[in-house]
């Protein structure tokens, strides 16, 4: 599939188009322009490097939402084996915006859960653009409890704009579903590693993201609201999204600097979608390393350290009276 380029990548796109053109020329004519192509390819790599060295938070937001970015099911297919997808919340339905199931990571059984966006229009609609409803969060909670009962570590992949704001969501208790997950995940007696692979949008993201270790891909974002939402509320103008993205500090680099993220996983040059295989390898290595480190901890120790971690969230000062 042809790579689709974002607006700030246009210079790279033009260069790539030229390379593509030259390839066709080679096929038709006898002239050997291999050298020319490899020269241009090197130039394209350098250009990509330069552009990606100075991305703005808004450009990173666009990358986090890139339509070709690997999604949860791509990671599951490439990094795990023996995936048994499990469906339904046993109360209302099966929400396809969240997927989950049993799988093996290098032979070890784990539970894996994640938001799932759709690749084409039809699938996007089916998966509600990765925006879960209460039944999605309740399915996730059911699978977490199942994992706890069988002492399987939990891996979650975060990639959502946010929980779905609809009439049915409110009727079925969106708030309660999210709150319940936050509550239950904080005392789950199994290791939890969460990875923000794309968009980490507000409570809808956190509802599967209370964890022992939080990882973030280099061009993923994580915040309390989308830059557009923030702009329309605070600036009363959604067009201020670029400044909002700047203010919110939603990038992996910034959040890691604030100590809110345990590790930033480096993406291939140009983003995860330019070389998914390399991204999957990085993911596999990181997950193994964190799960190994947590595997010896008892349920009590995990609960205690997670609780301590969560209680430490926030920045405030204290005056002495």
């Amino acid at each position: 599939m042809a790579v689709s380029f974002l607006d700030f990548e246009q210079p790279i796109a033009e260069l790539e188009a030229k390379i593509e053109e030259l390839r066709h020329v080679t096929a038709e004519s006898k002239v050997n322009i291999k050298d020319e192509i490899s020269k241009l390819q090197a130039k394209s790599r350098q250009l990509t490097k330069n552009i990606f060295a100075n991305l703005t938070p808004w450009q990173i937001t666009q990358l986090a939402r890139h339509p070709q970015r690997p999604y949860t099911l791509d990671y599951i297919a490439a990094v795990f084996t023996d995936f048994q997808e499990l469906h339904g919340d046993r109360m209302y339905g099966d929400d396809l915006a969240i997927v989950g199931g049993l799988a093996r990571l290098e032979g070890r059984p784990v539970m894996v859960i994640g938001h799932q966006k759709g690749r084409d229009t039809k699938e996007r609609v089916r998966r509600n653009y990765g925006m879960p409803k209460p039944e999605g969060y309740r399915k996730a909670l059911r699978l977490m409890r199942l994992a706890e009962r069988f002492r399987l570590p939990l891996v979650t992949f975060i990639d959502t704009t946010g929980a779905y704001p609809g009439v049915g969501s409110e009727e079925r208790g969106q708030s309660e579903a999210i709150a319940r997950n936050l509550y239950e995940m904080s005392v789950l007696g199994i290791p939890i590693v969460s990875v923000v692979i794309g968009e980490g949008g507000s409570g809808g993201a956190l509802a599967i993201g209370v964890c022992d270790r939080l990882l973030m891909l280099e061009y993923a974002t994580y915040s309390v609201i989308s830059p557009e939402g923030c702009a329309s509320i605070l600036w009363k103008n959604a067009d201020k999204k670029e400044i909002a993205a700047e203010s919110m500090g939603l990038t992996a680099a910034r959040l890691s600097g604030l100590g809110l993220v345990d590790e930033v996983l480096k993406e291939p040059l140009g983003g995860a979608h330019r070389d998914p295989q390399a991204m999957f390898e990085t993911m596999r290595t990181a997950l193994l390393r964190y799960l190994d480190a947590l595997s010896a901890a008892t349920p009590e120790a995990l609960r205690a350290s997670r609780n301590e971690r969560i209680a430490g969230f926030g920045v405030y000062s204290e005056t002495t009276a």
């Binding site: 936050l182 904080s186 956190l206 915040s223 309390v224 605070l234 203010s247 809110l260 969560i310």
Partner: peptide, 17 residues
């Protein structure tokens, strides 16, 4: 509170825990 961005989101986890 939007002005505290991810910190405020994490207060949801903190109060629930």
């Amino acid at each position: 509170r939007m002005q505290e961005a991810l910190y405020s989101l994490l207060q949801m986890a903190k109060t629930s825990a």
